[in-house]
């Protein structure tokens, strides 16, 4: 395969935290902020910044509610985000095949 024909990896997803967010959200219906933070292993500020980037690009939707008196932030992947993630995975696999 011609290396020039390899599609570039989406820079919005090509980051450990954003990749982690989309990997989790692609396999569940929704996930809370705290779950994402603990599973990916990052700080509140770092996660918030990355979630905002993904939300601004339309890859995820964020809902803020209350669980009793505690604020609860829930995230879901959008169709655009899921398509982008799938494309990312395909491009990643193509790159790995080329490397071999």
């Amino acid at each position: 395969m011609n290396p020039e024909k390899l599609s570039p990896l989406d820079p919005l997803i090509h980051s450990r935290i954003r990749l982690g967010i989309l990997s989790i959200l692609a396999s569940v219906e929704e996930a809370t902020f705290n779950y994402l933070k603990e599973t990916i292993g990052t700080t509140d500020g770092n996660l918030s910044a990355n979630l905002m980037k993904l939300e601004e690009s339309g890859y995820i939707s964020i809902t803020k509610t209350f669980s009793g008196k505690k604020p609860k932030t829930t995230c879901r992947i959008t169709k655009k985000g899921l398509d982008a993630f799938r494309t990312y995975l395909r491009n990643l696999e193509a790159y790995l095949k080329f490397k071999k």
């Binding site: 980051s15 989790i24 692609a26 396999s27 990916i40």
Partner: peptide, 20 residues
């Protein structure tokens, strides 16, 4: 920004999914 190489990314994606 922490970046992973493609193989690390695949492993990372698998790990995230397994945790769910």
């Amino acid at each position: 920004m922490e970046e992973l190489d493609p193989e690390q990314e695949i492993r990372f994606i698998r790990e995230m999914i397994e945790r769910t």
